Simulated scan of single mutants.
Amino acid sequence: MTNKHPIGIFDSGYGGLTVFKSIAERLPQYDYIYLGDNARAPYGDNSFEAIYQYTLECVEWLFSEGCQLVILACNTASAKALRTIQQKVLPVKYPTHRVLGVIRPTAEVIGNFTESKIIGVMGTRGTVNSESYLLEINKYFPEVSVYQQSCPMWVPLVENNEHLTPGADFFVEKYLTELLNQNPKIDTILLACTHYPLLIPKIKRILSNKILLVGQGDIVSSSLERYLDHHIKIKELLAINAKRSFYTTGDQHVFDEHASVFFGDQIFCKHIDLKEQ
């Protein structure tokens, strides 16, 4: 059987590239297609219906490009669209396809990082309001207390390449303070948005070194590796030419400039218009 199916990776913008980078480092042999829906980013403040519709359109586009396995490298999409797609769309329209998110693999391990059994979760309004992390972490670590903090200005700062400027300091400190005011015994903070790792230098300057920061890149890439090892039929269908393709619904030149910061390598993308699909 010919190996011809790339792995699809989707995010509303650039943040998913931090996850993609970890996946590509751990599993460099596979072909990948990355799609950033930059024209409609950020997703975090949109309604459930809008996020679901946007995510489904992007997933179906990746399916049309040959991807049978798609990773939602976006916490908001994982929180508000993944389950509906898995339960209602795939069985009816795409029974041989799979869509995975970033919340469950993170929830499965996050409790292993904390000693105080008190965790902080920082995310978009959409992710926080969904309470997905509260529910999922409680399944795996019922003894762990979870406190959430929405950070509505962090994604815009990162998307506009303002995350390292002095102007970003106010909002980084503001949301960290609001989280820690909920419970000063928090010893582990989960960055539950794939944009947030770019703010780590500023976050670390504010936080006590006794508080552990946890990103999602290594967690998700490790989980994907285990998933493929346990789903051999899916693994055997994947293309292994180490080819990487990037697409955006926004301005491709702006995407290339910003995305290279997230991914760590120069990127040249193509533009797509989902309305034409």
Rank of each mutant, 00 (worst) to 15 (best):
T124R: 06
Y196V: 02
N183Y: 04
D229Q: 11
A239Y: 00
I200Y: 01
S222E: 14
G8D: 02
W154Q: 06
K117Y: 08
K139N: 08
I186K: 01
Y94I: 12
P6F: 05
T248C: 04
P95M: 13
K270A: 02
K235N: 12
S223A: 15
L134E: 06
T106W: 05
E65T: 11
T114F: 08
I119P: 03
Q86N: 15
H163T: 13
Y196N: 00
L72C: 12
A81P: 14
N75K: 13
L35A: 13
I103F: 13
K80M: 15
R26C: 04
T124G: 04
E115L: 07
K210L: 05
R205Q: 11
C269G: 03
P197K: 05
I219P: 04
G16P: 12
H231V: 01
P28E: 07
C269E: 04
L135G: 02
Y140T: 07
N160I: 11
P95A: 15
L224N: 08
Y54D: 07
A168S: 15
N138C: 06
F171V: 14
S64L: 09
S22N: 10
H5R: 06
L228Q: 09
I23D: 03
V128S: 02
I110P: 07
A39P: 14
P42Q: 11
P95I: 15
Q53F: 12
T2F: 03
I232V: 11
